[in-house]
Amino acid sequence: MSKTKYILGLFADPDELMHGIDTLQKNSVPIYDVYTPMPIHGIERKLGIKDSRLGYAAFLFGCLGGTTIFSMAYYMLVHDWPMDIGGKPAFAIPDFVPITFEWTVLFTAFGMTLTFFFATHLFPGRTPRVMDLRATDDRFVIAIDAKGNIPHEDITNLLKEAGAVEVKHNDRKYVSYE
């Protein structure tokens, strides 16, 4: 029984990486994940990843921010302590537009970004789960779960044929752990 946990195909070029994904998929080898130093456009469709729903979150946070500050302004200047400024109405809606806009933007930005961090498990001090240290530098890495995907040599050959510059058989899932 081999000790290999993950098979990594390291590519030097994003187009060859895409070719590698195609080759693996054609041979029904399931892909665990792909790690790249830059965003690769079109890869999510290939891997069947659905569109991000962060846009909906952003919209809802924006609505929340605008409503919050508008209600605050209404409560403070109209309900709680209306001021007579030259006989003008206390409920001066146009004057509330700038602050409503600012907090819409503020809540959208923070709400959406924090949702992104939460959903992707990003937070300060999180132990990085890196499978190959060059994946943030100049290598485009396809990771394949070794369990059940045998024989490993076939996968190695497939990756090599597709243009992988290196194929690794890692005994540990994450190389970044001490």
Binding site: D33, V34, Y35, T36, P37, M38, P39, I40, I43, E44, L47, I49, S52, L54, G55, A58, T108, A109, M112, T113, F116, F117, A119, T120, H121, L122, F123, P124, G125, R126, T127, P128, R129, V130, M131, A135, T136
Partner: peptide, 20 residues
């Protein structure tokens, strides 16, 4: 923040950048 550069991270990252 424990960034890894996986497909989903990049996809969300780009969405966030575009909306920001």
């Amino acid at each position: 923040f424990g960034w890894t550069g996986s497909v989903k991270t990049w996809q969300r990252f780009e969405t966030v950048c575009l909306i920001l």
